[in-house]
């Protein structure tokens, strides 16, 4: 009995102590308040706002007057061909872009193999250049490069056809549905590969040089050093970035698709995010669009939790949570 009283007392003292500490540090809470409010208003309110995916929300009536409709909007989504097409494209581009994940790793290894440090630095500074451009700028550049009448690529193809005897068909790649997938992938790789090398190159620089020296004394070839020293040292970074990448796998690239798409290729360029934008903001079907967006976010969340769980089993240090 008395023990319990003591425990109760010590607990209440602990709470009091915590409380005192919070009071003493109140300026810190004032400091974090704007950030807290920001995340609540612009991130957590919208999270609860997804509830309109289950109601018949209309912009005219507002939040006060809406009824719960269950899975109606989700059922309707899957009966629409425009949505299932967008979902199919989304998965296609997601997976193809995920296949580009090793490209920056490869490029980083190649860059790190250059002996001349200055050469290395210049290459690194130049390959990240396209990452700084917005997709509208990239689209403008593509318009210039691919223009059938005066563009570089058609000119190059014509030249190759006449002098090398190749047989390229000169089409407008921006509006050609058949070549749209490689067009999306190549432009994506061109823009993103450089930025991907930054973190890997930093990780490669951080590798203990003594490991290499020991390997060289043992007579290991350059390839063997890459295989047995570089790659294992890089693995935690690769896994961490891979988890983040998988968490974003459902983001098939709104900015890119939005910039590159045009009426002639809509059916090939539509992904869930562009579908949400079109249905929600152009047709003002808020509940329907929110349902589509929620469907995507929920899958993304499940994927990142799953990959994180897997990573934790393989190597607890590389998990992100």
């Amino acid at each position: 009995m008395s023990e319990r009283v003591l425990m109760e007392r010590s607990r209440s003292q602990r709470i009091k102590k915590t409380f005192r500490e919070i009071i003493a540090d109140y300026p810190l809470y004032i400091m974090i308040l704007p950030g807290l409010l920001y995340f609540i208003i612009f991130h957590y309110l919208p999270m609860f706002g997804v509830s309109i995916a289950f109601t018949d929300y209309s912009i005219v009536k507002g939040f006060g007057d809406m009824n719960f409709v269950g899975w109606k909007w989700f059922d309707r989504l899957f009966s629409r061909k425009s949505f299932t097409d967008a979902l199919f494209n989304n998965i296609k581009y997601s997976l193809l872009k995920l296949c580009c994940f090793p490209l920056p790793i490869l490029l980083s290894i190649i860059i790190s193999e250059v002996w001349n440090n200055k050469y290395k630095r210049v290459v690194q500074t130049m390959v990240i250049m396209p990452s700084f451009l917005s997709w509208f700028i990239v689209y403008g550049i593509l318009k210039a490069l691919l223009n059938v009448t005066d563009g570089v690529l058609p000119a190059l193809m014509t030249w190759m056809n006449t002098t090398l005897g190749t047989n390229f068909e000169i089409v407008n790649f921006m509006t050609n549905k058949a070549t749209f997938t490689p067009y999306v992938l190549i432009t994506y790789a061109w823009k993103e590969i450089g930025m991907g090398t930054v973190v890997y190159l930093a990780a490669i620089v951080a590798i203990d040089q003594q490991l290499y020296e020991a390997a060289m004394i043992d007579g290991a070839s350059r390839m063997k050093q890459i295989r047995h020293i570089l790659l294992p040292s890089l693995l935690p970074t690769i896994i961490t970035l891979f988890i983040f990448r998988v968490g974003k796998v459902m983001d098939a690239g709104f900015d890119q698709m939005f910039a590159l798409s045009n009426p002639l290729v809509t059916s090939a360029a539509d992904i869930i995010d562009t579908y949400v934008y079109r249905v929600g903001l152009e047709e003002a079907k808020f509940s329907q669009a929110t349902a589509a967006g929620l469907f995507k976010s929920a899958i993304g969340l499940c994927l990142v939790l799953f990959t994180n769980w897997m990573a934790r089993k393989v190597d607890p240090d590389s998990a992100i949570m």
Binding site: H43, P46, G247, G293, L301
Partner: peptide
Amino acid sequence: GMFFFTMLFHGGIIPTYLV
């Protein structure tokens, strides 16, 4: 934890627009 979660899940453009 609360701030980190916003990197994993977001409400989407429509609810944000409504806010």
